[in-house]
Write a protein that binds this DNA or RNA. Structure first.
Lengths: 195, 195, 195, 195
DNA sequence: TATGAATGAGTCTTCATTCAT
DNA sequence: CATGAATGAAGACTCATTCAT
């Protein structure tokens, strides 16, 4: 009983170790340059072991992405549901949350949004929240009348831009990150505001 | 002398052939999926020959990127120098040129700005042009008074966002690319406009 | 006692399950392409369990072959004992049974007679029946006087030839298998007949 | 000049070494159980080198088969063209040549006729000679009227039977090989003779 | 200058087998 | 008795790079 539990925990443990190692390596070296061997060496297990937990390399990536999106989604849902805040402000908060999430989880972020050449399907759920936010604000007459999807994608692009740049071009002499983020949000909000 | 010259020309010739072939292959197949052998076969030289002109595979890429970004730089310079156009519009044109350049050279773009394996140095020169453009527009009173560097970086981020997203999340159901790009530019320009 | 018996029965049960699964898989996929894991999965036991009943993969094969050839042997014995049929005809029936057995159990056949990785010992017993058959027919004056062993081996060779060819050179455009087999039997019987 | 020649010879040399090693190993261990690595080790080259001479493992097998068939074909053609010998006798000689070829080149034979699960297409050319031989004899009225293809395949099967058995079941107590072969030929010839 | 044969380390993946539980 | 996690060695194959010629 106790044994089973511990076993289960250990099993989960290795799974996590693999994911953790893969995350780090994927980001540092790029998905293509990380071999199953390297992951195995990092966690000091044999390559074969990894195949006990994941189907293949792509599977590892997919699972990392899944986790990431699930966490982000929870945040966005919470913000969207907070009726005490004005729609436009909720929108801004949502975008800020997105950016911060990326900056706080650069590994997850890069893997999911930057290297995932294979599919952004999981992101669709998060994007759904953004769509909602834009919809609210437009209904409330706070942002300009336009295609909701188009506006949403543009806002996403803007937010992704800061996030990605700050993460991947870390050698560039950016101004203080917080200021840049808020400047970006100012511009985006001002850019979509109804006049 | 004549002999030396011809030699030199021929040497340049092979070098160019290699770059040309590599460019094509890198763009078509992606850097990781191009082997030195494939490049050699394409130009009908032996793999060894390539090492007479380039240190290694990364060197080829670096040189291609240099060239590529020199091209982008020339475009931006030209736009900035076109005094017949209003500063704000020049700014917009510059950003659009940047985005289009990325979308037309996705592999170069990704390598330089997304994987960034060898600094953003090339991009720095281009960023200089952006700084100039923002400076002009601010001097002309067309955009809001703020830190020129901060505004420039935000605009870069916005432009990078669309570009990167369209390239790397190609599986996502984006609206028509042209429309999204223009929407992004609208938002950015509206967002920085002086009122 | 009752407990012991049940235990024994259950133990036999798993053993049989393993053999049954292995047989099916070996025949369907070929010995080399069947892994212990696949067998284990099929019977829903763990890989380790199999090693409680068999020494290794080869052992499973050996035991299956034993069983299989016991089945062939029984067939041949039955044919040889059927006194209602003329000796020469019994001989023909025996050879036909052998060939059909091979064509119906191609993987077993190949393993035993073609790859022969573990002696032809099993086949030896069957060859004994052939010897008997030839002996009968010679005593009955139906086939030419000659060394019984030599004739038997030649007949075996002939039968093996069709069988092996049809199995291993399956890409070759053979005439309808049944016709080829009967033609072969015609020739062999005619070839040994006493005149 | 001399250099080029030597190079060429050496290149041929390695190719031959590979083929030779592969032949031996394929026969001893079976095609499936021979890895490129093993071949490479045997000739003391790196695995990669093999890929400079052959496309893949199957290619090696294919080329071995090609060579084998070419040699056998030449023999059969010669026999068939010898008009000084009676058709039936030519047929017998052809079959004997085939068997002897197999027994003298067991490696080649096994690889080509026993293990080549992939295609007997190359054998078609040799089989063509057999067809001719049977055709002559039938026209000459020396063998029974029947489907030429069917008869030919049966004769091939008989010849293959002795050959394969003597090679692969070498542990079995066969009578003296020469006698068995002649007995087989007696039976086959007697079996197809016109009466 | 250019070759191209050769390599060694690497790729992902599978597997028979062991062993602590 | 049965498990199943773990392994080490092996599978085919690729590649950047070197070096004698």
């Amino acid at each position: 009983m106790g044994v089973q539990e511990r076993r289960e925990r250990e099993k989960q443990g290795i799974r996590e170790e693999i994911l953790e190692a893969a995350r780090t390596l994927f980001v540092k070296e790029g998905y293509e340059n990380v071999s199953i061997r390297k992951i195995a060496e990092k966690i000091e297990y044999s390559p074969g072991t990894i195949y006990l937990y994941f189907q293949d390399k792509a599977d590892i990536l997919a699972q990392i992405s899944e986790e990431t999106f699930a966490r982000l989604e929870r945040k966005l849902v919470a913000i969207n549901q907070d009726a005490t805040v004005e729609p436009l402000d909720r929108l801004r908060r949502g975008l800020r949350a997105y950016i911060q999430f990326g900056l706080e989880n650069p590994n997850h972020y890069v893997i999911t949004f930057v290297q995932n050449s294979f599919q952004c399907s999981a992101g669709a759920r998060c994007f759904g929240e953004l769509l909602k936010g834009v919809g609210f604000a437009m209904e409330a007459g706070q942002i300009k009348e336009a295609d909701v999807v188009e506006i949403s994608q543009a806002l996403w692009a803007g937010s992704h831009g800061v996030t990605a740049l700050l993460i991947t071009c870390s050698g560039f002499p950016f101004v203080e990150h917080g200021r840049l983020v808020e400047q970006m949000l100012d511009i985006l909000m001002e850019g979509v505001r109804r006049r």
